[in-house]
């Protein structure tokens, strides 16, 4: 059987809100390492990878590796019933066809059980090679969200260019064009407010803004976001989940034929 107890249950709620519109059904993989997921969006353009390490849970028991197929919209409906301060426990039996979500209020005066049917999902796991990226930009997550939202009111695609001057986000549409440049800025009070550009080589890639906007639904998970880029490789948009792991989005670039 498996049983995970997450004191900061709101993390799981935030993860679901971040991915449920991108991915419909997914297999959650449970092992002694942690709770993870890898899934593509229905167009097979983007990939979501989630890792919540076992050490981040207050209690983590996983007797054997288990894959649990879930409809993320249904899972989200259930997790929305948990309060933001609730402790969430996930339980399932080996070979069973249900998963139980238990919500406990902080003062233990309300305890709820929700059972959800599991699904058989045949999903293809992709191998993601370890890569040295040509450029990595770390910036405040709220700033990145704002830029994606602003640019999508003007165009459908964004060109992200990293040079030693900074990172430039550009778009073009019927009404005109826009360029937003963020320079490295490490002279801030808090490290999460910094913009840090690690550039080994300049890089310039084109992406669909629709996906970028979808990824920024993960903004409540982390104060900062990192964008890892190399020519002709998918962009990695990573939100770290404090003390537990990460939520990563991989997005295939648009390439000239």
């Amino acid at each position: 059987m498996l049983e995970f107890r997450l004191v900061q249950g709101s993390l799981l709620k935030k993860v679901m809100e971040a991915i449920k519109d991108l991915v419909t059904d997914a297999n959650f993989e449970c092992s002694s390492t942690g709770f993870s997921l890898q899934a593509m969006d229905s167009s097979h353009v983007a990939l979501v990878a989630l890792l919540l390490r076992s050490e981040g849970f207050e209690h983590y028991r996983c007797d054997r590796n288990l894959s649990m197929g879930m409809n993320l919209n249904n899972m989200s409906k259930m997790l929305k019933c948990a309060g933001n301060d609730d402790i969430i426990t996930i339980k399932a039996d080996d070979g069973g066809d249900i998963v139980t979500f238990m919500f406990e209020s902080p003062s233990q005066d309300k305890i709820s059980d929700f059972e959800m049917k599991l699904m058989d999902i045949s999903s293809e796991q992709l191998g993601i090679p370890e890569s040295e990226y040509q450029s990595i930009v770390r910036m405040p997550a709220a700033e990145f969200q704002r830029i994606c939202k602003d640019l999508s009111s003007i165009g459908d695609t964004v060109i992200i260019s990293v040079t030693k001057e900074g990172v430039k986000f550009s778009t073009r549409g019927d009404i005109g064009s826009a360029n937003i440049v963020c320079r490295q800025n490490t002279s801030v009070d808090k490290p999460e407010e910094a913009t840090v550009i690690e550039m080994k080589e300049p890089v310039s890639l084109t992406f669909a803004l629709r996906y970028m906007n979808s990824f920024t639904k993960a903004t409540p998970l982390s104060n900062s976001v990192s964008l890892s880029m190399s020519s002709d490789l998918p962009l990695v948009v990573e939100y770290k989940i404090a003390d537990m792991g990460y939520l990563r989005f991989y997005l295939a670039p648009k390439i000239e034929d």
């Binding site: 167009s43 097979h44 992709l126 191998g127 998918p234 991989y250 295939a252 648009k254």
Partner: peptide, 14 residues
């Protein structure tokens, strides 16, 4: 205009 590639163009099953 640049064409959208699928993610499977870059990452293979395995």
């Amino acid at each position: 205009a640049p064409q959208q590639r699928p993610i499977t163009f870059f990452f293979s099953p395995g």
